[in-house]
Design a protein around this nucleic acid. Structure first.
Length: 409
RNA sequence: GCGGGUGUCGCCAAGUGGUUAAGGCCUCGGAUUGUGGUUCCGAUAUUCGUGGGUUCGAUCCCCAUCACCCGCCCCA
């Protein structure tokens, strides 16, 4: 038997209502905030993600669905199922000349992403993200709007008491200096670090900071090291930007917590980064995450354009929201006169009522039993009704019956 | 990629080395050829994730494999 591929899931009718509610809430909220929906392709040139997401990230190194199709030149034909959507949106932004559009350019999206990982709770190989991207605004009010929007969306979905964790990674310049200071401080302990951290030490020292390895954590607890880590390293401009973000968050009454250890795993972030977590999710606790990526548009060949955005994991959100029951049909037509039944159902549907009938023409009692399970009302059509020129409508909750004309249904 | 756990009908779930693998829900049929959601009766797993092995015999023992779950890593 052929089964759904590992790490993929069918979204069944019994679950679809919640998905639709998520999508509807997103559309209304984001469009109301002047974000336009954008739908970009599921696959892109592999090169886009290598440059965009970053060569040193796990996503690019071991989690991409990459394959070649046709063509002789492998570089040209190598495509990848998108592991995230910021790179694709940036590509579209550049390709369609949005840098000429009036600032800010604001997009939102909803769609499947693909990462080849070991599946777990809150982690699938095909998963869905909802996200927003805002281009062209360096002002910290943009960062605050995006963070507030993420929280607003979650609260509209009925999830309260979530707190955003925020941090600033500084700009490339001050961050490099910070990296060097951390490397210098940790140099004497290099041997004691875990293997992963030894690699990170060279490639991306900042990512050592959220290492879960006990040995490493112990080293970072060391007074001297801790001081270096926790020291404010960001430059004047970055600090001013960060402080303004926090000021705007206060104005927006957004609850947030500063977390200096917060480092995002994608290379394109600078300055503001944030994450929204829930402890109801187990070890995959981040529902949403994002930040500023002022260098990405230029890196992908566009004009230098500041940008900020977030992405939210729909499957993780799904775990947190309350699910609603399927709504009952307005009418179920109960009749052993099939001609009448199918005709009446059509009539009801034309009047924008939800309606169905028994295609099997089962016994009256069985039809009514089924009606009781899936509909609010039964429309009964038998010999009496046909000869009398009326329809019997039975309210299936109260048991009350009425004789009505067709136009009164 | 590395550790730990699980795998019996669509769903939940008992079970034991030996003739027919409990039960509940759902579904279907009947009691009831025009009035349901209560009740009663009946039907539905040549089969116990898959493939091997041990054994006179295995759902229950062993090995492998796959899938799922929980951690690590990383991310949404």
């Amino acid at each position: 038997m052929i089964k759904a591929q590992r790490g993929t899931k069918d979204i069944l009718p019994e679950n679809i209502l919640t998905w639709q509610r998520i999508e509807k809430t997103a559309r209304e909220l984001f469009q109301g905030a002047n974000y336009k929906e954008i739908r970009t392709p599921i696959f892109e040139a592999t090169e886009l993600f290598k440059r965009g997401v970053g060569d040193s990230t796990d996503i690019v190194n071991k989690e991409m669905y990459t394959f070649s199709v046709g063509g002789q030149n492998k570089d040209e034909s190598s495509i990848t199922l998108r592991p995230e959507n910021t790179a694709g949106v940036v590509r579209a932004f550049i390709e369609h000349g949005f840098s000429r559009a009036s600032v800010p350019v604001k997009f939102w999206y909803f769609g499947p992403m693909f990462r080849y990982e070991r599946p777990q709770k809150g982690r699938q190989r095909q998963f869905h993200q909802i996200g927003v991207e805002m281009f062209g605004v360096e002002n910290p009010s943009a960062d605050a709007e995006v963070i507030a929007l993420a929280l607003k969306f979650l609260s509209k979905m009925g999830i309260k008491e979530l707190v955003a964790e925020v941090n600033s990674l500084g700009c490339p310049k001050c961050r490099d200096e910070y990296k060097n200071r951390i490397k210098n401080a940790l140099k004497p302990y290099l041997d004691k670090l875990c293997d992963d951290c030894k690699v990170r030490y060279e490639k991306n020292p900042l990512r050592m900071l959220d290492c879960k390895n006990e040995g490493c954590a112990e080293i970072f607890e060391n007074e001297e090291i801790k001081n270096v880590i926790l020291a404010d390293f960001i430059c004047e401009e970055c600090l001013e930007h960060y402080n303004s973000v926090k000021k705007y968050l206060d104005i927006l009454k957004v609850k947030y917590k500063e977390n200096k250890m917060l480092v995002r795993g994608l290379d394109y972030y600078n300055r503001t980064v944030f994450e929204i977590k829930s402890d109801a999710l187990g070890s995959q606790s981040a529902v949403a995450g994002g930040g500023r990526y002022d260098g990405l548009v230029e890196m992908l060949g566009g004009e230098k354009t500041p940008a900020v955005g977030f992405a939210l994991g729909v499957e993780r959100l799904y775990e947190l929201v309350e699910h609603q029951e399927e709504e009952k049909l307005d009418y179920f037509v109960v009749s052993n006169l099939q001609d009448k039944a199918i005709e009446t159902v059509q009539y009801l549907r034309d009047k924008e009522k939800s309606a169905d009938f028994d295609f099997q023409n089962r016994k009256f009692g069985k039809q009514l039993e089924k009606a009781g399970k899936i509909a609010k009302n039964a429309v009964i059509i038998g010999e009496d009704e046909v000869s009398g020129g009326y329809y019997t409508v039975k309210n299936l909750e109260t048991g009350e019956q009425k004789k009505l004309k067709l136009s009164e249904l």
